[in-house]
Design a protein around this nucleic acid. Structure first.
Lengths: 193, 193
DNA sequence: TTCGTCATGTAATGGGTTACATGATTAC
DNA sequence: GTAATCATGTAACCCATTACATGACGAA
């Protein structure tokens, strides 16, 4: 995860650790704050694997600054991860990182990830609703309220994903096209408006 | 965290591991799913510390079932944690667990936790907004959209907390009372309706 | 008889945090 | 001169996951 994010940021431009961390944390908005204790060891590991190079940039000032850049292998690895779009990409935080790099992601992969995420959330919701009704426990109002709020959050994200998916699809087919509209039925499986 | 949750569930009634896990996961709604790999070792640790006892309940059937119950120390420890309401209680997941046990929590502690959580979210939001405006990076629309959605989520939770806090306060002072209304000014610090 | 789910656990590993240690540079 | 923030790192620890191993019970 950290690794993936670092690859993505370095793919844009070389950076040193401190700056990298700031970007990392602003990139993921409110949901994460990596510490140096994980960042620097990660950079080392990546260096050992040949994904990044560490160049000492003590150019003008005597201040030590280590600038990390992606190697060719690093870029390759990043491209690989971008395209994976597998189950790991639907998880909360991994999804966010993937989403951050959507501008660099293949449109097909984007759709796969968005849809995968949506399906995952819907499964989660159903599993939860099921459990809640089966085991009709006498839960107090606080627990109930927490669950209600949780479900509402999930619903909200699903709606958000629906909009994004629509947008993505619209861009893929900019209104002309007599293309065979593959698997069009799937469109109706999810939360009809 | 797991420990705290386990203490709380066992405070209601003795349970065996399997059932405990189910309750745990339904309690936390959509946001967590503990595995046995963490549950059982935790139960062992708690047993070693004298917080729970493990009784073999192979009563009617030969099927092995280990029923865990809270000891007096366990109850004490739980009460302690309930009352802590410190900074750790404002963190995402810890907050959820605390909230789940609000029915058993002192009204004052409830308010402290809700307000602490709100302040924490507001700080997070401000820090983030600040960072976003200071470093005016040319971020692509996806990154922007992710951030927008993130901020909206935070706003939504703050509004939710506001309602909960209002309710808590209203219940504390059921309309009579000429009490000195301590620090009433603070009420206006947060997101006016 | 086979499938789902109940039931208990372990070993290896992962992916991070906290706290610490150090020091240069910039702004007031 | 002093506080904030830039800048790099390490060591100890924590809390959990994944994958594995095992097996009984009930329902179809």
């Amino acid at each position: 995860m950290l690794e993936f994010a670092v690859l993505g940021l370095l793919a844009e431009s070389p950076l040193h650790g401190y700056e990298l961390r700031k970007r990392l944390n602003s990139m993921l908005g409110t949901l994460r704050a990596f510490s140096y204790g994980s960042l620097y060891p990660t950079l080392r590991r990546m260096q050992a694997r040949g994904w990044v190079t560490a160049d000492d940039d003590s150019g003008r000032s005597g201040r030590s600054k280590v600038v990390y850049s992606l190697t060719a292998e690093g870029k390759e690895r990043f491209a690989e991860l971008l395209d994976e779009a597998g189950p790991s990409a639907w998880e909360d935080e991994t999804f966010s990182v993937h989403f951050s790099f959507f501008a660099q992601t293949d449109p097909e992969a984007r759709l796969r990830i968005l849809e995968g995420r949506r399906t995952r959330l819907e499964e989660k919701r159903e599993r939860f609703r099921g459990a809640a009704t089966r085991t009709r426990q006498r839960v107090d109002r606080y627990t109930l309220e927490l669950q209600r709020h949780g479900l509402e959050s999930v619903d909200r994200e699903v709606r958000w994903l629906n909009e994004l998916i629509e947008t993505e699809r619209a861009e893929k087919t900019p209104r002309t096209t007599n293309a065979p509209a593959p698997r069009a039925a799937e469109d109706e499986q999810h939360s009809p408006p």
